[in-house]
Design a protein around this nucleic acid. Structure first.
Lengths: 218, 218
DNA sequence: GCCATAACCGAACGATCGATCAGTATGTTA
DNA sequence: TAACATACTGATCGATCGTTCGGTTATGGC
């Protein structure tokens, strides 16, 4: 490769394999419960190989977290631009993309366990970086709901809190998923309905409450 | 008292203090991240004192989990019997009680972190005991929603999945709560609205979809 | 053929881990 | 007062923790 330093040729395969294995172990045993020896063994390398690629156990977590949130955010941006711009369709796309990201295979489920439970272990400075990405996700969902309220598709009083609730729902499904006897697409369809319902929570002063509306439909 | 063995006089205070301290540390650092030395120091006793009251670190977690779920379940049963038996009021009571249980003070927040994240650390046999209690909670919420559907107050197709979603929401609020600039009662009111909305998710084949219903109201 | 660099390995470091020990105050009972 | 259970303490066990170090192999440019 000509002259000079080449830090990343095509995303070094050894490093990526170690990170994959490390995330597996952390997903199963938690960050503190996962030893670097377990991680190295899972990757089929020595402990020292891990320290060749990562300066510390904590920094391995930091690198994964940063990458994971970036990937999710980028995917969401892309899918949202490609989809129907109407707010209900956009909300469906958010729910579908988030749930699929966390459930689509075994490793994604372990990775999402790490992403949403272990970010508290980071050093304060690194945590702020991750929190900023999480706030970007929140704002993204909030904007779709606020647009929906403006267009008359949704009715919630508090688009930000509705967005928070929807994010909590779509990112906490790994454990419950095992008990639901449903396909991933079935879960997505179900939660698209729940998310729309949250976005359509009647305003506090709305005399047409949901319960009575439901009764009038039956 | 009189004669014979008296294992629990009035719930031994030393043991209770150690458990309180241990749960604090586990709530902050996670089960694996919390050392028995941290726990003992927090309680102001020696490490050996901890082992006088508990056979192992894991069994301390087990005892706490068992007690915590029992207390929550008992409180829920009691509040539900005292409340208006109409399904919407019962659902409000469930949401209010669960959120208050997890947010009402600093220690409750740490304890709920432990209760809903660390139950996976238990031995399989002990975990089954806890899972049974969690299933009791799920069935309790499911029954209220199913009754609401039968009475025409609610409309969801899947009462069990709606119940699961509502439990996820009400038990995952500890972290988001710090970012919401809201009183606990404000959060409860908000989530009572979300829970009712989920219970009123329109049936899949219902031509009167929420979005169009919302539009017709405005 | 030489050497730099990348990508590892085995062995070991001190620290800390969960757990156990013998000992000791402080009651309460017989 | 002798006996005994309760509720601890300080010291210590072997195991495991995250981390480091010196050495080894494979590869590719000059």
């Amino acid at each position: 490769m000509s002259a000079g330093e080449v830090p990343k040729r095509q995303e070094r395969p050894g490093k990526a394999a170690i990170m994959r294995a490390a995330v597996e172990v952390m997903g199963e045993d938690g960050y503190e419960g996962a030893s670097i020896r377990d991680m190295a063994a899972r990757a089929g390398v020595s402990v020292a190989a891990l320290y060749y690629h990562f300066p510390s156990k904590l920094d391995l977590l930091r690198q994964f977290l940063e990458e994971a949130y970036d990937v999710t955010l980028a995917r969401l941006d892309r899918r949202l631009r490609a989809a129907d711009p109407a707010p209900p369709a956009q909300l469906d796309e958010i729910v579908g993309t988030l749930i699929a990201s966390h459930l689509h295979d075994e490793w994604a489920q372990l990775a999402s366990n790490v992403a949403f439970r272990e970010h508290t272990r980071l050093l304060p400075a690194d945590r702020r970086v991750i929190d900023k990405k999480r706030r970007r996700l929140l704002r993204l969902v909030e904007d779709v709901i606020a647009r929906g309220v403006a267009s008359g598709d949704f009715t919630v009083d508090e688009p930000r809190e509705a967005a928070r609730a929807i994010i909590i729902l779509t990112t906490s499904l790994v454990e419950p998923y095992r008990e639901m006897r449903r396909s991933m697409h079935g879960v997505i369809a179900l939660y698209q309905g729940f998310a729309r319902a949250i976005a359509c929570t009647p305003a506090a002063d709305d005399p047409t409450a949901l319960a009575s509306a439901a009764r009038s439909r039956s």
